[in-house]
Amino acid sequence: MRAYQNLTIKHKQIVWAWAFLAIPVLFYGVIRFYPTGTAFVISFQEWNLLGTRTWAGLENYVRLWNDPVFWKVFQNTFVYLLIGTPVSLVLSFIIAYHLDKLRFMHGFLRMLYFLPFMTSAVAMAWVWRWFYQGVPIGLFNNVLAKFGIAQIEFLNSTTNALPAVLAPAVWAGLGFQIIIFMAGIRAIPTSYYEAAKIDGVGWWTVLTQITLPLLKPTMVFIVVFSSIGFLRIFDHVFNMTTNNPGGPLNSTKPLVLMIYDTAFNGFNMGYAAAQTVVLFTILLVVSLIQLRLLRSE
């Protein structure tokens, strides 16, 4: 007590700040960092949830390196990222850009775009899964059949399945990105646009010289945010392919689904933890690269 009384006001403030911070720090330590650390340890062990853990050295990582399914899954994960992120970035910008100019029913339209973001991914995935079915129940194929066009195998195909699964995931994320983009657009001072108007500059120049450069921080945020989302994609894939999780022939399987399958169907915790460590590393590296690339000079 005496020690506390001897502190200066500044130090007392620091003590109090730490006192309040202790709760979230403790929370993060126990809920986040402790399990993360344990996952790293388990990745060097063998454990089936029931018995004792035994040390396995680098065995899990060696196995991962030699596992053809892992490389397929690794590739899928990046396909999700490399298609999903640019497509959703471009789409959400175009929508936000035009929505910003629109006054008529602006709020209603914005709500419509935002709605999928608030919907449960599971429910959405199941509805889309039904859309994609073949005749006689699938919505899209029934329409095609009505016009005498051959059916398209959306999900039961090694080439079409991944884009088919990705589409609702992109759609679901759009609402959030549109809102962020609109906030970014609104934050650009109008004086720039007025100056451009006085100079008689065309809309293209305004877009490329004023709007886009000034939206860079917004875009960095969205790219990083959605990249992490696509790298961690799971619920859409899992729910749309429960009959053949990540299939057919692993063509839609992302890393997270492989982790889930290894851990809770195979009960191979060590191997699953090794995959988790790899996913963690990928997320870290991708995020760092993006931050570096997109940071303003």
């Binding site: 195998e153 039961n156 195909s157 053949n244 299939g247 057919p248 022939l249």
Partner: peptide
């Protein structure tokens, strides 16, 4: 996992 092997077997022929 063993079921998956057989599902993949049929997919290989079917697709």
């Amino acid at each position: 996992a063993q079921r998956q092997a057989l599902m993949d077997m049929v997919s290989r022929m079917d697709i």
